[in-house]
């Protein structure tokens, strides 16, 4: 009886796990991002996959990121900002602090970074230069 119960429990656990793991054909991409050798403290990384540029974003924290990305050929866009001490006043009645984007355009708005994402797990690290 006890053996049967244990077996039944395993079957239930297996069924629950299989039932929940369905859906989503994304791959996991992890890596480190450095700019001029220094880890990027707060930033964002976006993989734009395929000719239509299907986007998958993740946060870069202290130089590391983990993203869920659909497999395929991707253009990579990396942004990171730091406070500039300046303010924007385009909204009458309000001053908003503006930052300074210090990653060059060749890594974001007109990115030349290209990577191929494989199914499963990928390790993609980027060392960005001025």
């Amino acid at each position: 009886m006890r053996v049967f119960c244990v077996r039944a429990a395993w079957v239930l656990v297996a069924a629950a796990t299989v039932g929940c793991s369905g859906g989503g054909n994304t791959a996991t991409v992890t890596g480190k991002v450095t700019f001029e050798g220094e880890p990027v403290k707060d930033g964002s990384i976006t993989f734009k996959v395929g000719p239509a540029g299907k986007g998958f974003s993740a946060t870069i924290k202290d130089g590391s990121y983990t993203a869920q990305v659909e497999p395929g050929d991707a253009v990579v866009e990396i942004t990171a900002s730091r406070p500039s001490g300046k303010f924007d006043t385009s909204n009458p009645g309000e001053k908003t602090p503006i930052g300074e984007m210090y990653i060059p355009k060749k890594y974001n708005t007109s990115s030349t970074l290209k990577e191929t994402i494989k199914p499963g797990s990928n390790e993609k690290s980027f060392d960005l230069k001025k």
């Binding site: 707060d42 964002s44 986007g55 998958f56 974003s57 946060t59 993203a67 900002s81």
Partner: peptide, 19 residues
């Protein structure tokens, strides 16, 4: 429902990282 960021002037509840 993409994981890509909405990008507006300032987001509600954004922390010091702006996100």
């Amino acid at each position: 429902n993409t994981s890509t960021w909405d990008r507006v002037y300032t987001c509600k509840g954004a922390d010091s990282t702006g996100r």
